[in-house]
Structures are given as structure tokens and as C-alpha cells.
Design a protein around this nucleic acid. Sequence first.
DNA 1: CGAGCGCTTGATTGAGTTCAAAAATCGTGG
DNA 2: CCACGATTTTTGAACTCAATCAAGCGCTCG
Lengths: 204, 204
Amino acid sequence: MKREKCINKTFTPNFDLYLKAKLGISEDNLARLVPLLKKEIVNKNDFLVREGDNSRYEFFVERGLLRSYTIDQDGKHHIIQFAPENSFISDRSNVYLNEPSMSFIEAIEDSYVIKLDDKYNQFIKDISANKEYNEIILNKYIRNLEGRVNGLLCAKAKDRYLQFISHYSKISLRVPQWMIASYLGITRETLSRVRKEIATNNFV
Amino acid sequence: MKREKCINKTFTPNFDLYLKAKLGISEDNLARLVPLLKKEIVNKNDFLVREGDNSRYEFFVERGLLRSYTIDQDGKHHIIQFAPENSFISDRSNVYLNEPSMSFIEAIEDSYVIKLDDKYNQFIKDISANKEYNEIILNKYIRNLEGRVNGLLCAKAKDRYLQFISHYSKISLRVPQWMIASYLGITRETLSRVRKEIATNNFV
DNA sequence: CGAGCGCTTGATTGAGTTCAAAAATCGTGG
DNA sequence: CCACGATTTTTGAACTCAATCAAGCGCTCG
């Protein structure tokens, strides 16, 4: 028997705020738009997307925490992105290039997401007063990724971990260690040792 | 004395094509726009942007080849991006977030670039018939970066190199080996050994 | 309570770095 | 066209960081 979730599926305060404050959608249009949105509750460990899927949804995380990850030839998992409340997550191969999904998107916590399809994007494009905002988000994410590439290129395990917890302190408290290791591209054992070293040696 | 360059600063066939075919700019608007563009010839080894700069230009590479890279605390260079003809390059911290540039942008070959500022973007936004195209480019670049992150997370030096030369075969013939090593996040010595191994062992 | 999951710890292995130096290639001026 | 210096690539040996393999610990949840 499923336990009852404390997630209310009617209100979407975070997404409403995003639409109003960021995209400049009017109250009228908002009232028209919101009932059309597809919402979904995902339990911890459930999937929104699996490798090979072709559903072409983007997701806005109204509440909870998700991750996307790939599995390589050796069966190892590699986390691409964490997505907490107020962030977007999708498989870009699938959504923007019509290729089958290369990644899995899974709930780390019981979550509540809004599913965005092409129709939504079209509608938004027409009614948004701030058409550049989407591009700003994309550019921020790019800068983020470039920073991550840079970290992977030049920093050792310890420094990458320190950078991660300083940059994503809230997320780092909500996910198990092995996921952080997977995100950083190191093993859980190495992360464990790194943490020990930080705890004993330094007090930065 | 400077040697004469065989680069003609009047015509911009690649950029014109981009504006017409991709953004759907009309001949009329094109004729109005092109004379306003700032163009620049950069010689090999010259810089368009240095760390700390605040010029806020994006560049379209009409001809030639550029790279962007960062320098870490140990003085090591890490290549973020190669930009051949028909591609864009910029420092996103600077252009989109108004922070001083974190990277250098340098010409690998004698090049010819078009400098794009905010005014250009505003103008384009007004006259473009295909307003989504910019986002498509950004999403492609994101997918690219996510793939690179994934490669850095799971692939060994040899596989990353093989992936690079298969994906960027043209670029790989135009840049010295040590730049490829820098892009891949390995030393030139390691790359040399990897290449030797590929040459002797396999014939893929 | 016991099974499973996540974290830690130790011993060993291996990929890649570092340092040093030789060999090959490139560009330039004579 | 050749020669010279500078840059790039290759090679070798020692070393380092992180991965792997293998146990053991501790907590939680059914």
C-alpha cells in the first residue's frame, strides 16, 4: 500500500512566481495557462525519464530534488545534474534534437514537477513579456557547465569536493555521499578519504 | 614589418549565410545590418579577450580558428573551447553576467571575426524571423558540454582522445598536439604515449 | 532482529603526472 | 634552398593520486 504524500497537486507557487516575475506573464494569461499544465508527483527513486525514452518533456521542479545521470559501458553511473526546487531538468538530446534520451531522470526525494512540452513553449513564446529570459537561463547553465569542465580539467578530488560543497551547500546536505562522488567523478571510497582528510587536517 | 594577410575585410559570406538562412533575416535588413557590424582581423597568437577584460563582445568566426582557455593557480592552461569558422565564441561570465572575463580568447590561426555587442543582439531580436534559432544553438552547445563532462567523468585518456578526433577530426588536424592534450585534460606526454599505443596496437 | 544500504578503512594496483633529456618538426633569415 | 634556433613531440624513470578489491561497521526500516 502506498503511503500518503504530503504534496499538494493543486498549487504551484514556485512556477507561478517564475512565470510572473521572470517571464512577465500577466495575471490573465497566467490564469489561462496554469490549468493546462501537466503536473506529476514522483516518489523517491521513481523515474521521469529512462535511457532510450522519447517523451520530449522538460521538467520544472516545483518541489523536491531530482538528478539526471548516464550509465557507461562498465555499468557505472555518472550524475550530470542535480535539480532542486525552482530549476529545470531535461534530456537535451531528446527534447531539442529529437534523439532518444541518453540519460535517466530520477527523483532523489519525493518530488512534484511540472511537465513542459512543445505546446507550452510555443504558448509562452507568444505571451511572454520577457522573451530573453530563457536565453539568460541557458547562458547561466552554460557558464555553470564550463566551470564544471574547468574543475574536472584542473582540480584534484579534494578541491573539486570543496568547490562543490561551497557552491551547492544546500544540495550537498540532501543527497547521499555516493551521489556527490558520482557527480564529481570519483569513487565513494576516495570521497570518504578526502572528507576524512579535510576533517582532520584543516579547518577551512 | 607585418606581412600581408590574405583576408578580405569587406565580405562576410559565412555570417551573411547565417543571418539569412538560419535567422531568416531579409535581404533588406541584411543590407542595413551588415555595414554596422564591427569586424576584426586577428593574427595568430593575438588575443581578442584577456582574463579580467570587460569588453562584453561575442565573436562570430568568419574565418580562421580561435580558442578560449583559462589559467589555473599552478599556471596551467586549460582549453575550454575551439572555435572554427561559422562558430561563436565568448566569455559568458563577461557577456551574460557582467563579470570580468575569466578566460583568454586567442587566435590559433590568422582569423577574421565579427564582433557582436548588445546593440546587435537587440536589433537581431527585432528583425529576426526565426527567434528560436539562438536558443537552438545554445541548447546544442549545452548538449555538447554535457557530453564533454560525461567524457571527463567516465572515459580514460585514450578513449577521450579517440572520441575527440572522431568528433572534431578537422580541428584535430589544425591544432598542435599539446592543445588537444590541454582540451582533454591530460599532459602532452600522456597524449604522445596514447597516440603511440593507438598507432602500434590497433588499426581502428 | 536481521537484511540492506551507505560509509569507512586497509592493502594493492594502475593510470597518468612530473622531471629530464633527446629527437623531430617548423619557421625564418640568409 | 639550406641552416639555425625555437617549438613541439617523443621517450624513459620515478612518483602520486585515485581506483580497485575486500572487509567491517553502523544505521534504518520492515
